[in-house]
Amino acid sequence: MDNSSYKRAKNFRKLKRQLWLSFLLLPPALILITFIFLPMASALLYSVYDWDGLIRGDFVGLENFKKVLLDPDRNWFFFNALKNNVLVFISLMVIQNGTALVIALFLAREPKGARFYQVVFFIPVILSTVIIGFQWKMFLNPVFGLINKILNAVGLNEWALPWLGLPETALPTMILVNAWAWVGFPAIVFLAAIHRIPQDLIEAARLDGGSEWQIAKDIIWPLMAPAVTIIVVLTFIGSFNWFELPYIMAGLEGSPAYSTDMLGLLFYRTAFGSISAGGTEFGIGSALAVIIFLVIFVFSIIATKILVAREVELN
């Protein structure tokens, strides 16, 4: 064999390797491109066109965005929904994640039955939001529901309200239901983060005479920062994608009186039509989607930046 045939043999091995890598990478890449990247890019494109049903019309620049944000006939819906989403996020941060933190701190002390509690708190997390929504909607039925029966039974008759029927109580009620369903998730994430803190650090603090509260505040809390960052960002994304629970419990129109309207519901109504919004409006819907995406994206980046600065590297 002359030298060139050795080269050819080597090149053949190289080619084989490249084919193998392509074989591994192409199918997943193709799936991702077709069903994620292409639609995401198209959404951007669609938002700057006029649409007539399923047919794309003229290029209209930022006209669709203006309609969402500035058109006096409809921008109330956007800002109302945005306000509600923000409200959901803040409430969940306090109620759901606050409770989760308390649970995690308690569970980290390994009380009797810690394992059992973990499993119990996590059960609703694995259930479909549809099931949870319907179940609570039935419990909250003003006449037949369990909640008001309990309230009547314990003598709190004036508390037996149509919880989902009043503009003042509908959203808070749904937020509580969401907190009930999801509290286990941040609790477990926090707990795992606490378990990851080296035991000797906590013991050292205890030997230094720190109270349990001081240890939690000065040692555990700063060291579980990465988990907090993740939960804050995930809660934000979850709050701004809130759709299933209000859809099931309050319907597409965010009743009563749009008090439970969310950006997700508004987007759905705009895109696919409803009684109030009329027919499908793909252009305006796409513009709305882009805006929601930007809100989530910008918040995630800023929140991560701020929260990561607080994180300390463990060794």
Binding site: I36, P39, M40, A43, I237, G264, F282, S286, I296
Partner: peptide, 8 residues
């Protein structure tokens, strides 16, 4: 978030 690309 793929949901937001639901139209395309």
């Amino acid at each position: 978030p793929l949901r937001l690309a639901i139209i395309p």
